[in-house]
Write a protein that binds this DNA or RNA. Structure first.
Length: 600
RNA sequence: GCCAAUGUAGCUCAGUCGGUAGAGCAGCUGUUUCGUAAACAGCAGGUCCGGGGUUCGAGCCCCCGCAUUGGCUCCA
């Protein structure tokens, strides 16, 4: 999840004011690379979110020094003020032009057969045109559009960022190419702003802050992708879990627990061993029988549902659990807390009657937004994924479910996008992505119908008509996984957690050790009031103690000198640097308690 | 998993041409008792990621692993 790095998804030429610039720079870069490696083969080079890339097959692997050389050549080409010329060619002409460019030939064949440049079938088969753009000595198969000429590019507004391996057409069975990423902006100032944002993101990186603030670690001895929660990180998790659990109970959920492993039979019935096996760990043998670590909690909740006969009057049933699951992830995909191999979902499964679906979805979405907003996240986009080509269940059920999802989103006036055909084979879903303080998007919540498992397990309830009926089943996770959610919170707050979440809410700073006994008494009083407080009893000077507390991003520093001790007070410094001056201990308790209750 | 880069003290990092392993912070000890982001001094701290090889000699060169980082792919 490098959220600031451009995604491979091409930007839109109409809505993105930088599209032409970035696309043109991709061509300029390809020319520069071919100057350096005349035998090089070029693949594709689209504009992306913050820049552009181009994929190459080159006689040797690139080094970071090559990037400077390529940049130099690019600036030289830009200075030539070369115009971009568009022309349309026939398939034969195109084949001749790119006779020594095998990737281009493959693209041309695709175009000739009505596919687009990514090899996807196009809906508008009729209007397939093969075109090229030429500037200076470089001609590329390209749909455009481009700038008028290279002189429109600010030579100080772009920078080549990195080299990465990328499979031809993103398929790991295809040859691996070398991809050069660049970022490009209208001006040097914009580029610098972008680079500053990258630095800021680095400063907030949860992996860095996790170490600096002693929140969590990952040990080689334990294994990659497996998280150790240190006391301070665990404190935050416990607060978040307690808050959310109470909220669930108030919202009509029933709390359940389920084990970490289950028999092969369970996973055969659920179908996980058919369609999810690549993500599951090898089974363990228990008295000759295979057991699997759970990659999902649903089959267990289903067993609870099925433990006795359900009446239509019993529904809906909402089972919630912090369920720890294990999923195999490719080693190269692991990333801090946001992509791990063992994680705990704030999972729930709702079993309901068809006539309750609308209400249940609305409640689930309301609840999800309430919980996320409580954690200071307020900027959301919803993604509605609809029925794919391959699916299970009845079309009527899909339509009803999809409409319920859409109406729930609309009721909240949330910005949302439809991903037509993007649902899983077993049901439509809404994903909520949140935007953090830097505007980066993170997927957390998901509300997902399942028409598969009720069928496979033969779920039933007895209806008013004394006939068995199949319930609807909805999976949902709000924070998603505690690990990822924690990572997002760390980065969102840059480690400066709001008071209610801060693992240490205040540090008492005695100026000399004459105040130590008084500090101890103050701590006892604050602890009694439910505040998490430490005394800095090191032999540092006050300045040193303040600095340490600042670096640990502790919300309050309570300075205690002779004057405060006389007055039964503490001198309050906030981590913003603001000095509230001396106030009585009781006044501070009141002030802090209110702030905790407000969750800000 | 694949491509590339990286891996040196708890942390951040330096280490030249292959020739006795370094700094700052953190830790420990001593001195200092101080009013809003670092008191002073000393001490200790190493499987240079692991294993093999080349060499008189390897942190440095070669090979094989492991881990991390950036991508590809995938996702809570």
């Amino acid at each position: 999840m490098p959220p600031l790095r451009g995604r491979s998804m091409p930007a839109d030429p109409n809505s993105d004011p930088n599209y032409r610039l970035r696309h043109s720079l991709a061509h300029v870069m390809a020319q520069a690379v071919l100057e350096l490696f005349p035998a090089g083969k070029i693949a594709i080079g689209p504009p992306i979110e913050h820049g552009f890339y181009y994929d190459f097959d080159l006689p040797r692997t690139l080094t970071p020094e090559d990037l400077s050389e390529i940049e130099l050549r690019m600036r030289r080409i830009i200075a030539g003020n070369h115009a971009f010329h568009y022309r349309e060619v026939s398939a034969e002409e195109a084949r001749a032009l790119f006779a020594d460019q095998p990737f281009k030939l493959e693209l041309i064949e695709g175009l000739a057969q009505g596919a687009d440049e990514y090899g996807e079938a196009r809906s508008d088969q009729a209007g397939v045109v093969i075109s090229t753009y030429t500037h200076d000595s470089f001609e590329d198969l390209c749909r455009g559009p481009h700038l008028g000429h290279t002189g429109e590019i600010d030579p100080e507004g772009f920078k080549l960022m990195s080299i990465a391996g990328a499979y031809w057409r993103g398929n790991e069975k295809n040859p691996q190419l070398q991809r050069i990423y660049g970022t490009a902006w209208k001006s040097k100032a914009e580029l610098e702003h972008y680079l500053w944002r990258l630095e800021e993101a680095k400063r907030r990186d949860h992996r860095r802050l996790g170490k600096e603030l002693d929140l969590f670690s990952i040990s080689d001895a334990v294994g990659p992708g497996l998280i150790l929660w240190h006391p301070k990180g665990a404190m935050i998790r416990v607060i978040a879990e307690d808050f959310s659990r109470q909220a669930h109970l108030k919202a009509g959920y029933e709390w359940v627990f389920s084990p970490h492993i289950g028999r092969a039979y369970l996973w055969e019935t659920s179908g996980h061993l058919d369609f999810y096996k690549e993500s599951m760990y090898a089974p363990m043998d228990i008295e000759g029988e295979a057991y699997y670590a759970k990659p999902m909690n649903c089959p267990f909740h289903i067993q609870i549902y099925q433990s006795h006969m359900r009446s239509y009057r019993d529904l809906p049933r909402r089972y919630a659990e912090y369920g720890t699951v294990y999923r195999y992830e490719l080693s190269g995909a692991l990333h801090g807390l946001t992509r791990v191999r063992g994680f705990t979902q704030d999972d729930a499964h709702i079993f309901c009657r068809p006539d309750q679906v609308e209400e249940e979805i609305r409640r689930a979405l309301d609840f999800s937004l309430y919980v996320l907003r409580s954690f200071g996240l307020s900027d959301f986009t919803a993604y509605l994924s609809t029925r794919p080509e391959k699916f299970v269940g009845a079309v009527a059920d899909w339509d009803r479910a999809t409409e319920a999802l859409e109406r729930a989103v609309q009721a909240h006036d949330l910005p949302y996008q439809r991903d037509e055909g993007g649902g899983a084979f077993y049901g439509p879903k809404i994903d909520l992505k949140v935007h953090d303080a830097l505007g980066r998007e993170w997927q957390l919540s998901t509300i997902q119908f399942d028409f598969n498992l009720p069928e496979r397990f033969g779920l039933e309830y007895m209806g008013e008509d004394n006939q068995p009926h199949r319930p609807y089943m909805v999976h949902r996770a709000l924070m998603g996984s505690m690990e990822r959610f924690f990572g997002v919170l760390i980065e969102h707050f840059a480690g400066a957690f709001p008071l209610w979440l801060a693992p240490v809410q205040a540090v008492l700073i005695p100026i000399t050790d004459k105040q130590m006994a008084y500090a101890e008494a103050v701590r006892a009083r604050l602890g009694e009031a439910g505040l998490r407080v430490e005394i800095d009893d090191s032999r540092d000077r006050m300045q040193g103690k303040i600095r340490r507390a600042q670096l640990q991003k502790v919300p309050y520093m309570l300075i205690i000198g002779g004057k405060e001790q006389e007055a039964g007070a503490v001198a309050v410094r906030m981590r913003s640097g603001e000095d509230l001056g001396p106030i009585s201990v009781e006044a501070f308790v009141e002030h802090a308690s209110q702030e905790v209750a407000r969750k800000v």
